[in-house]
Design a protein around this nucleic acid. Structure first.
Lengths: 128, 128, 128, 128
DNA sequence: GTGGTCTAGACCACG
DNA sequence: GTGGTCTAGACCACT
């Protein structure tokens, strides 16, 4: 279980933890049933506050990624529920639209952006 | 110049204004040199505070999208492809990676995601 | 008499006019007794407001650079009064200190800065 | 951490804070990683408004000098020589040219100006 | 009438 | 307790 936080940049720490764990689940590095390190362990190893880690774990539970039980370590849930509500899909579209807009305003061409997408997709496929 | 705000969402108002203006610039609805409505006008028409609008305008200026001059209205800047630093490209990649991960965890397949991208790209091309 | 304004950037227009005229006086392009174009002419040629030009001329008069008489064109004063008050020298030092600090924070070395200074000084000497 | 504001001058308070912090970073009094006092602390100690201090901190963040994170104190960024864009160098040259012109119009000679520069440079070198 | 600065006070998100 | 967002109202500098 490898986690790191970027001191520079504006992303809140708890969001960085969330996206890293989600990424590892997406890539298959973390499999259903796998144990996550304890809140305290993560906090110590990253030199951050325990509340911050706990917050991240709570959010992951709310998103149906992990399972939290009192006194036991967090575990990746067995059945990844394909939530896929119309709400979450709409939000995804908004984020994608903003991403594309920003890419264009940065001077990237359509092809540049497509390349970027394929590059990231390839990276994920390889891991699987 | 059309702007709207979504009271329910969690997105701060100033971010909504920013992405809407950026989207219109990206689509070519707003052209270089075009005047934006004054902060007071936007504030009145949306029923929000002047400073909230000003905050959005300030961020747009810092991102090199618009030009703010004391006593004049805000204008879309002339030189379009400005920045494209390695920093901003790295940030773009991170956002894209998170987006793809979230899409997968929602149950979308590779093809589903590709479709979504093409759909959004097509929408932008049509406007141009 | 050549003037131009930089639409991008944050410097107020009247300050741009002031510094350009002062620069031309400093370089000797504008000599004592020389006529300046009328407020209206400058405003028309630059596509800006008359008040803006008038404001610049007033400030130049207050700094003892030009001479304003009702119904007559502005003229460069004959005797450049070497004001050189302790106040203005203190302000100069502050501006210089800030300039050097900014240069350092941008990554320029001591030598880089010295080069920059010599470069600008040489440019002024040549004109004389 | 020592800050002071000059009520009489025309410089906005937030600009005074900015240049003082930048100066201390330049001199090495503030080192990368160092914590800055919270906006509330600075505001209280200077008898000014929180938002004024915040404004200064925001500008410093945008200039890549400090790091702002929700819930944490501001810190001096680690990577020091960051930007140095052609834009910012051009702006530096303009400011230097104006400074030199003003010095000449005040009656300072070339040597006087050179002395002034060396004097300021020496002051900075000594601190390092 | 425009944006720029400052004050003031509130509530929220993060650590 | 920290920074982030929003509201509100005032005065100033610039066009």
């Amino acid at each position: 279980m490898l986690l790191s936080i970027n001191e520079n940049g504006n992303h809140p720490i708890y969001l960085q933890i969330i996206s890293q764990i989600k990424e590892q689940v997406g890539k298959g590095i973390l499999q259903p049933g796998d144990e996550l390190p304890s809140v305290r362990e993560v906090a110590d190893s990253l030199g951050i506050n325990m509340h911050t880690v706990r917050n991240a774990y709570l959010k992951l539970r709310d998103q149906g990624i992990i399972n939290l039980r009192l006194g036991r370590r967090a575990r990746i849930v067995w059945r990844q529920p394909p939530v896929h509500t119309t709400d979450s899909e709409a939000e995804l579209k908004v984020r994608l639209k903003e991403l594309i807009t920003d890419a264009f305003l940065m001077g990237l061409s359509l092809d540049d952006f497509h390349d970027l997408v394929n590059q990231q997709l390839a990276q994920l496929k390889m891991m699987k």
